[in-house]
């Protein structure tokens, strides 16, 4: 076991983790943050996407020990301080970008990482950023629309 300290959604946490644990299991099991989910366990579906030090990562492939000293954001931390939904969450709801919802937390986090860095993406850039998040239900069209709409809204 190793003791790690990192920041999750603005809150510092310290805990003991097994050396072969991934960040996803620490979030799910130790911190009871269930938003990120295991869809494949091999970094190929993106359902476990969270943001580490400002970039989207697949937390199933991220060694928990490596999170030590870093800043982690999950979908649970997305709601604004005012208590209202993040624009991405609102547009995902309003544009029909959610069906079964299993991919949604990861999808939203990939989109947030994109918009944090590039507030004004074009459609292709959105697709590149989300290509690692598989969705079997929606066919992606409404998801891309939702991300572009959120980008518009965030410019206001």
């Amino acid at each position: 076991m190793k003791t790690i300290t990192f920041t999750v959604n603005g809150n510092p946490v310290t805990l003991d983790v097994s050396e072969d644990a991934n960040l996803l299991s620490v979030l799910n099991d130790d911190l009871e943050l269930a938003g990120a989910k295991e869809g494949c366990g091999a970094g190929e579906c993106g359902a476990c996407t969270v943001i580490v030090d400002g970039v989207a990562v697949t937390s199933c492939l991220y060694p928990a020990c490596e999170a030590d000293g870093r800043v982690v954001e999950t979908v649970e931390g997305l709601v604004l301080e005012s208590g209202s939904l993040h624009p991405l969450q609102r547009t995902f709801v309003d544009y029909g970008a959610v069906q079964c919802g299993f991919c949604t937390p990861g999808m939203v986090m990939s989109a947030k990482a994109l918009l944090d860095k590039y507030p004004n993406p074009n459609e292709q850039e959105v697709k590149v950023a989300l290509a690692g998040n598989i969705c079997r239900c929606t066919g992606y069209t409404q998801i891309v629309e939702a991300v572009l709409a959120a980008a518009e809204e965030m410019k206001k």
């Binding site: 970094g43 993106g46 989207a56 990562v57 697949t58 994109l114 950023a129 290509a131 690692g132 998040n133």
Partner: peptide, 9 residues
């Protein structure tokens, strides 16, 4: 290479 998430690490 891979997805953006994988390319990030």
């Amino acid at each position: 290479v891979g997805s953006r998430q994988v390319r990030n690490v």
